[in-house]
Measured scan of single mutants.
Amino acid sequence: SAVVMEEGSPGEVPVLVEPPGLEDVEAALGMDRRTDAYSRSSSVSSQEEKSLHAEELVGRGIPIERVVSSEGGRPSVDLSFQPSQPLSKSSSSPELQTLQDILGDPGDKADVGRLSPEVKARSQSGTLDGESAAWSASGEDSRGQPEGPLPSSSPRSPSGLRPRGYTISDSAPSRRGKRVERDALKSRATASNAEKVPGINPSFVFLQLYHSPFFGDESNKPILLPNESQSFERSVQLLDQIPSYDTHKIAVLYVGEGQSNSELAILSNEHGSYRYTEFLTGLGRLIELKDCQPDKVYLGGLDVCGEDGQFTYCWHDDIMQAVFHIATLMPTKDVDKHRCDKKRHLGNDFVSIVYNDSGEDFKLGTIKGQFNFVHVIVTPLDYECNLVSLQCRKDMEGLVDTSVAKIVSDRNLPFVARQMALHANMASQVHHSRSNPTDIYPSKWIARLRHIKRLRQRICEEAAYSNPSLPLVHPPSHSKAPAQTPAEPTPGYEVGQRKRLISSVEDFTEFV
């Protein structure tokens, strides 16, 4: 048969007729292969192709491409040299491709048809291009793949890379869960390890502090508590009631339409708007009261037996805890006409967050109470924005700035309102402590230090009264110190430094 060459192609190359033996071998191979691939376009007849790359030819070592076609129900084999250009295909004639002069020997084609199974398996396991790669995943090629499931790999992101949580363990979102698992493993320790309690022994800490320079003076030496005195035992138990972190309780009120001037209507609300609910979820963490331990979680007086509701929101960081007394989460009882059960919590909070959804101005004093010092007013606006402002009593104007209003988005509203309420509550605590000038409020841990110092002074006084020969370590507060001759004046800087060093040991009130 003659071949018409394309323009620009090399000279004529004689194409030899395939021997009958080659056709029989390739026909047997075509019957084993699956003929249901995917359909081509209507211009080209339905056909199945599979590209198999052999590394070497037997005796020649030339890479070839073998295409199996099922045109007219008769499979045909096409061998081509890759750099050459194939002729145009037609549905009426068999596929013809040019070969190099080196394939002119018909014996070479017979060798190609009689490829060993080793070469076929190696060509099938190679990388296939384009559409033949999808075909190689079918059941027909499963014989050339190794048996057994593939090893499982770690989760992959859409980009093909490992997620960040699997790369950096410290930033993994499941870090707290692993800590819980470690605690569970520790709890399952053997009885021999049960006595080993991690941490620092208080006796060891005391020993280090006792021999430090801070205890060089007799006034700073630790003293032993009497065991037989019940009054001192009660004082030590009272110390446990003062937490070592700051605590805040903040009221949250929802004002519906037409309720801006009605205290009873505001306290009777059992739910609010959708934006109000989203605002609550951002204030803190939802907790169930019956599962809380009052000595570990500050509840601000809420009952854990269901008297004040089942849930509330709280927030904490390293040095403070805040609980929100939310009116809509507290039960509304029919027998309580004046809502006294709610007001006994909300009316005693220094700061209230008022979500004013009424469309009218909310005035300070609508919720009557002796300790309502500051109101954080949240007014929802259009386009997911809110107006946040402050209202306070006249005696609080020096501590709280009420002249600045803020426009905040719904997303950042819980954070801004919480921070403003916490700052206002700190100012309210300082303002409330002014009624007792001898006990200015600095912080909870300073209050613990003052309680310890008062307890020490009482013990020293009782020891001096029981044994008059012992001198008083600290003179009583009601006694007057003996007159001392004025010492020589020293520079102001040295006096300030000495006073600062003494105050650092005794108390921190002056620095606050």
Rank of each mutant, 00 (worst) to 15 (best):
L329N: 05
W315S: 04
A483C: 13
Y313S: 06
I287L: 08
S403T: 13
V416D: 01
A487I: 12
I223D: 11
A417M: 02
L449T: 14
N220W: 11
E263I: 02
H248F: 08
V408P: 00
V376R: 01
W315G: 04
V473P: 13
L238Q: 15
N412H: 07
H248T: 05
K342E: 05
E270A: 07
M330F: 04
T490K: 09
H338E: 15
L472N: 15
D336K: 10
P222G: 10
G284F: 04
S443A: 08
N386T: 04
Q429D: 03
V404A: 11
K499F: 10
K221G: 14
Y245W: 11
P482D: 11
H248E: 03
K342Y: 06
P471L: 06
S428W: 04
E384F: 05
L470N: 15
S428D: 00
D382A: 05
I242G: 05
S443W: 09
E494A: 10
S358V: 01
K249A: 14
S389H: 12
K290R: 11
R418G: 08
S403M: 05
G309P: 15
Q310H: 08
N261T: 10
P414L: 01
F373H: 11
K499G: 12
K296P: 14
C392M: 04
V304P: 15
T379R: 05
D336S: 12
Q293M: 12
I250M: 03
S358Y: 00
Q429H: 11
C460Q: 12
H431N: 06
T247F: 12
A463V: 11
M426F: 07
L449W: 10
I440Q: 08
N227Q: 12
S389V: 09
T402Q: 09
F508R: 15
A327W: 04
S262Y: 03
D240P: 05
P475C: 15
G284Y: 04
S409T: 07
L239C: 08
S443F: 12
R498H: 13
H375C: 14
C460F: 12
V388R: 01
E233L: 12
Q321A: 14
D295Y: 04
N227T: 13
L390A: 05
H345Q: 10
V416S: 02
S504G: 13
L346G: 05
H474I: 10
S504A: 14
L238P: 08
H431D: 03
S409D: 05
D217L: 14
D240C: 04
K343L: 15
S428F: 05
A427P: 01
V351G: 00
G272S: 02
R275Q: 00
I287V: 11
G256I: 00
K337F: 10
W315P: 04
S409W: 01
Y245N: 07
S231K: 07
F371R: 14
P489K: 10
L302T: 15
D361C: 05
P442N: 07
S479N: 14
